[in-house]
Design a protein around this nucleic acid. Structure first.
Lengths: 235, 235
DNA sequence: TAAATAGTGTCTCTTAGACAATATTAT
DNA sequence: ATAATATTGTCTAAGAGACACTATTTA
């Protein structure tokens, strides 16, 4: 009867707690990875979990998500794509008390991260394969699956995939990013011709050295965002 | 200083209240309508609002939505399509205290409603055009707009539109339902040929009398739901 | 018969997808 | 030259959309 559970009495509260959880995606080592943190306290002590925290009374849900994002990755709002995923609120998802969590998805370019390989040595925070994550706390496995599905969906229907790349990129790098997230190979010629028609990227006068012919660098056209929203990029 | 606002002290609470709001759509009088209720209390007294209520500590968000839906329309879970829309939580959206609301969209066939024209005479509950609603309380105008957008989107990409029709329907009625929601006219021939290919409906051996040649009645094929999910029906 | 509605077929133009050909660099 | 990568082009089959035609009922 001395379990840590005794410290929590659900009856003390007649209102649920509200948290935000942020599934933070990035492309690292040619893989789609999500940032996870290792829990130090009961419940699910020692389990990996999606980063998140309580919503403060005076901040919006979005602000709370950006705040947590900044705390975990030190990345600013301007350098990240953030969108609400959905809200999870089964009564027993947290053994302490009723916790309703508003889940968000964030896309961060690897170039924005200061320690892109922190997960390899740090014990309590790290990047893990989004497809084969470790055992996760609470219903976080479920949330992560939802997030991956949404990301794939978004990538097919909008130009949001650019958020996973640095500001300048080659078309090959862009195609590889799409292939990693969609988990399928794409035809080089068709990928490029569609991209040309969609007019969401523009070439800059720079090239990247490769093993063969240097590759032209491209930039995402900001003014094309709205236009592309309703159009399928890669059906 | 005797305003009703004095009855509420936000400082008393360190946790937000959580509600569910349900945007209930139906096709009535050849229009897309949403069920609204008239508020009797401050704030927004006398304004129309999207029905909703507090989430109880032991019920899931979905259960809360179904409960409210039943209370407002007396329609059972089995007779309705319900899906989470998104969560709205700006700190000042409710002047009483911090209220975070999880919004849902519900589609109800007109044949499932017991008083499909209640709005015409009842003073505190009624069906209103989803496109030109009256002035709404809180941020409900915003929520309703989101709901309409989602409905259109869903209709294009899935077979969910059938939920707005009775069990048996003619292809013309189905086309009209789509035209009402999408707010555009569709070609009869193309509509029907796509529908034939998609195999989401099946003919029954019944006909409906019309002004001319009787129209064959169709039924939605339940086993086609999952299959259609990822496929665009009317691109 | 005409009017009204149901139901099917045909044609064209666009585009997705498979595949091939050419271009430019390093070694 | 050869290898490696970048970049563009061609062909075909499928599909979207415009439009016309036939079918079956009532008045």
């Amino acid at each position: 009867m001395n379990s840590p559970a005794d410290a929590y009495n659900p009856a003390d509260y007649d209102r649920p707690s509200v948290t935000v959880d942020i599934v933070i995606f990035s492309l690292l080592d040619a893989q789609l990875k999500a940032l996870l943190i290792k829990r130090k306290l009961w419940p699910y002590e020692g389990y990996w979990a999606i980063p998140g925290g309580f919503v403060e009374m005076t901040e919006s849900l979005e602000d709370a998500a950006y705040r947590e994002l900044k705390e975990e990755t030190n990345v600013d709002r301007a350098d990240v794509y953030l969108e609400q995923l959905r809200t999870f609120g089964k009564p027993d998802r947290d053994p302490r008390t009723r916790v309703i969590t508003v889940a968000y998805v964030a896309l961060v370019g690897a170039d924005k991260l200061q320690n892109p390989r922190a997960g390899d040595d740090a014990a309590d925070v790290g990047w893990f394969s989004a497809y084969k994550p470790p055992r996760l706390a609470f219903d976080h496995h479920h949330i992560l699956k939802h997030a991956v599905t949404r990301l794939r969906y978004k990538l097919e229907y909008s130009a949001v995939g650019f958020q996973l790349l640095p500001e300048l990129f080659t078309l090959r790098e862009l195609q590889q990013a799409y292939e990693i997230v969609l988990d399928e190979t794409l035809d080089k010629g068709n990928f490029r011709s569609k991209l040309r028609k969609s007019k969401v990227v523009e070439a800059v006068k720079l090239y990247r050295q490769t093993g063969g012919r240097p590759a032209r660098l491209y930039r995402f056209k900001d003014d094309a965002v709205a236009e592309v929203k309703a159009r399928r990029l890669f059906p």
